[in-house]
Design a protein around this nucleic acid. Structure first.
Length: 501
RNA sequence: GCGGGCAUAGUGUAGUCUGGUUAUCACAUAGGCUUGCCAAGCCUAUAACCCGGGUUCAAAUCCCGGUGCCCGCACCA
């Protein structure tokens, strides 16, 4: 489906829509409706089970979204996550450096250091575009972070977090004790992050407010033991940086064992890469031939990342492979920076007496992007029918309950709906229109099962208290006793969980 | 941020060039009749010219500004 068509369907069904839509929307901001909110919650639940569930020493925390300025200074965001900005001291208006300089330097300021831009502003007699003054400041970085006044005096600054990872690093010292001094130690955060993107695009793919799920695993650089046998023979669709240089775009299938044998990727990294790949293929159900593990070259990745593979999935709506998550080996950069910034030594003492600054393996997951990708890859037009073939444990609604003839069966059907709801199952009752339309609505919303109450349910006889249970993908119906429904639906709702490390 | 394109009911659209009736049609939605296990039929109803300004006797239509979306470039720590 094309992007426009998919977005229209998602809006119509109440999955998501632009924030402040009645005011014309706000660039890069979207709200989730009932189906979207439920799907997002269940996606997060599946992610948590798969990644945080990997070890008894992995924990999910829920930290604040505002970070004090000192944090983003230490992390490097204040300095690097920026565009250059020039302020006029006369009229206090700020401008982008390339705007002020466009007369003397029409080619723009990309690649120039702030000091070089400052020299241009000073030496070429550049004036303020608004008031004509020459009292222009040296260029300061314009933050792509949202800064806010903090405290009543208004003199302190805080920032909406641009990534959740920083919260995990900040929590490390506390979690070291809470987690009873175990390494590897995992600290996961799921939550909103905020970036003042220059050009939000492609709906859920570049937003100004979005949700990340990130697991930071702190480990002893002297050794990160993993049960490598579990993934040894898993063949992974990798696109290595070296191969890409010779023009390759499609992945080659390489076993985890062979990846390690190549020499430059440690076992612990490949293990987690394989575990991540299995999540996309087996839990989220992306077709294996649409997934690729895209290695970023030294030039492409952030300087502190020692190894980086992006998980990409080919999306028809955006006509290409799109990054949905990544596995970063960040070394000791983060704890080192926050150790310096805070003045607290974040190194820890191991049982054998060694003092080590833990390294970080970061597993990131773009919740919104995956929600879109699940719509792109699992939503199919089959003739007249549109079916969202979500795995049952991700579907926003697990079961639709209908009376075959509303006038005759509504009471009994409502009773079934209430029973299932009370059992903790996500239920949607519908008695509007023909039975075919009700099935169709549920198909489009991804609901895996429909229960219909009919004459046999309410009449005395062999089928008393039985209902029809209809399967979304096959459209097959079977007669099921009312009492057995809860178990049937609960088992479909069960999550795929990994073996512990 | 730059360049190009687009904007009419919930969705898809006709009308815009060449200003002039009550803004077209389909689907969807709601109610009714009928039917009773896969989007059937009939009747009825709700529902739109992105926002602001200008030109004109008259603007969905022409002009200006804004906003949003799409495509490329740049950006994506």
């Amino acid at each position: 489906m094309k992007s426009d068509e998919l977005y229209a369907l998602l809006r119509r069904r109440g999955v998501l829509w632009p924030t402040a839509e009645i005011y014309g929307g706000a660039q890069g901001l979207y709200d989730y409706g009932p189906l979207g909110a439920a799907l997002k919650q269940r996606l997060e639940r599946a992610w948590t089970a798969w990644f945080v569930g990997l070890s008894h020493d992995f924990y999910l925390i829920d930290p604040a979204e505002l970070l004090p300025e000192a944090v983003v200074r230490a992390s490097g965001h204040l300095e690097n996550f920026t565009d250059p900005e020039v302020v006029c001291d006369q009229c206090r208006t700020s401008f982008r450096a390339d705007t002020v300089l466009e007369k003397v330097r029409p080619e723009g300021v990309d690649g120039l250091a702030p000091a070089e831009i400052g020299a241009l502003v000073r030496d070429r007699g550049v004036t303020c575009p608004r008031c004509g003054s020459t009292a222009l400041s040296v260029p300061r970085p314009f933050s792509l972070m949202f800064g806010v006044d903090f405290g009543v005096a208004g003199t302190e600054r805080a920032y909406l977090r641009p990534e959740t990872a920083q919260n995990s690093y900040l929590a490390f010292a506390r979690m070291w004790d809470v987690g009873r001094r175990a390494l590897p130690l995992g600290v996961a955060v799921i939550g909103w992050v905020y970036r003042n993107e220059i050009a939000p695009r492609q709906v859920l793919f570049r937003m100004r407010a979005f949700t990340q799920a990130e697991l930071q695993i702190f480990f002893d650089p002297a050794g990160f033991p993993v049960p490598f046998d579990r993934v040894r023979d898993e063949r992974l669709p990798v696109l290595r940086a070296a191969r890409r240089e010779s023009g390759a775009e499609s992945p080659e299938w390489v076993s985890a064992a062979d990846l390690v044998a190549a020499g430059d990727l440690p076992e612990f990294y490949v293990f987690h890469l394989a575990h991540t790949y299995r999540f996309y293929r087996d839990v989220l159900g992306y077709p294996a031939d649409r997934i690729r593990l895209f290695e970023k070259s030294e030039r492409e990745r952030a300087f502190y990342n020692r190894i980086q593979f992006d998980v990409e999935v080919h999306l028809e709506s955006l006509s290409g492979f799109k990054e949905l998550g990544a596995v970063h080996y960040r070394g000791d950069y983060d704890l080192g920076r926050h150790g310096e910034g805070s003045g607290k030594d974040l190194s820890v003492t191991r049982p054998d007496g060694r003092k080590v600054l833990p390294h970080v393996l970061e597993l990131t997951f773009g919740v919104d992007r995956n929600l879109w990708a699940l719509a792109d890859t699992h939503l199919a037009n089959e003739g007249e029918r549109t079916v969202w073939k979500l795995p049952a444990y991700l579907a926003p609604v697990t079961v639709g309950v209908f009376p075959l003839i509303p006038k005759a069966h509504a009471e009994a059907a409502l009773r079934v709906a209430d029973e299932l709801t009370a059992a903790g199952i996500s239920v949607r009752y519908d008695d509007a229109g023909t039975i075919g339309k009700r099935y169709a609505r549920m198909d489009e919303a991804g609901t895996p099962f429909c229960v219909t109450v009919d004459g046999e349910t309410v009449a005395e006889g062999p089928n008393h208290d039985t209902v029809t249970l209809r399967d979304r993908d096959s459209r097959q119906q079977s007669r099921v006793g009312r009492a057995a429904l809860v178990d049937r639906l609960r088992s479909a709702d069960a999550l795929v969980r990994p073996a512990r490390l």
